[in-house]
């Protein structure tokens, strides 16, 4: 019943995946076009890659974006993990629901609002304290703020899938809270941290709107440069750049997917044991520590 495949369904899946992947494929194909007209095929060439390589503006922006991405991803993983710990492991404290709201709000906030409000804050702060100067730093702060929410979501789901009994057992065996975190919790949520880091890095690398708001003169990220080029029309260089980025992402995703796939197989959260249900309810009077 549940795995019966019907031809129309299969056809629909094919159409949808074609819709998802055709544009990406077209970017790659036309990056090898001889013609400057981009969409009119005139023969194979790697000319656009050579031009891209000589374009200092794009290369510098790419370098800046990568730097911002590295800083953002690292900060976001630290803050996001702390946030996830707050929300899943620390029980009740004052302002918990406010913090929970604040943690998920950046996920749904339209970018223009986040960008505008952060810029206005930076302007006020700069006027009052003389800090922070707008540029790479403010972009990192802004990106960290929304990326940490994504990291928190990923880490939270991992934490809640992980039985609290493991941490309790470690405590029971004499491990102090920091030891519990570093010897038990951290190794077990490591895959989530890797995934969160990569997601934060990608989000940062990808963001145009927020960066445009909070950036200052002289700090142009890769999306900002691409955007200014794209507004003027199609450009073979952008196609070449896109192909390279896609290649990079495909490689990255494959490698990480293989790594995580292997990891999760021998790091199952509760190893092959199912807590038997007693009288139809799990356990007897055990409640979640938060509650």
């Amino acid at each position: 019943m549940n795995t019966r495949r019907s031809p129309p369904m299969t056809l629909w899946l094919w159409i949808c995946f074609a819709f998802l992947y055709f544009p990406i494929l077209s970017l790659i194909i036309y990056s090898f076009n001889v013609s400057k007209l981009v969409t009119v095929w005139a023969g194979f060439s790697t000319q656009s890659y050579a031009t891209l390589w000589k374009n200092r503006q794009i290369l510098e922006a790419a370098l800046l974006s990568v730097q911002i991405g590295l800083a953002t991803a690292t900060l976001a993983v630290v803050f996001g993990t702390l946030l996830a710990l707050c929300l899943t492991r620390l029980g009740r404290f004052r302002g918990r629901s406010l913090l929970g709201g604040l943690a998920s709000a950046p996920l749904v906030m339209p970018e223009v609002i986040t960008g505008l409000s952060l810029l206005l804050l930076f302007v006020s702060l700069e006027k009052t304290f003389g800090w922070p100067k707008r540029g790479a730093l403010t972009i990192v702060i802004a990106h960290t703020t929304f990326a940490m929410a994504y990291v928190a979501v990923i880490v939270q789901s991992r934490l809640s899938a992980m039985s609290v009994a493991l941490e309790e057992a470690a405590q029971d065996l004499g491990a102090h809270p920091p030891a519990v975190f570093f010897q038990i919790t951290l190794p077990l949520i490591a895959p989530a941290l890797v995934a969160g880091w990569l997601l934060a890095f990608t989000l940062s690398l990808d963001d145009l709107v927020i960066a445009s708001f909070v950036s200052g003169p002289g700090a142009s990220t890769l999306p900002m440069v691409i955007y200014s080029k794209v507004r003027l029309g199609l450009s073979p260089e952008v196609n070449a750049l896109a192909s390279l980025l896609i290649l990079l992402v495909a490689l990255g995703v494959t490698v990480v997917g293989l790594l995580l796939g292997q990891k999760s197989r021998d790091h199952r959260v509760v190893p092959g044991v199912e807590v038997k249900k007693v009288d139809g309810r799990l356990d007897d009077d055990r409640r979640p520590p938060i509650g």
Partner: peptide
Amino acid sequence: PYDRPVNMMFQSYALFPHMTVTQNVGFG
């Protein structure tokens, strides 16, 4: 709990999945 001279065996056993049997037993 970490300073109490009592130990607990959990219903789910709560064996640390990333450690070997020896490491589990040696943890405390």
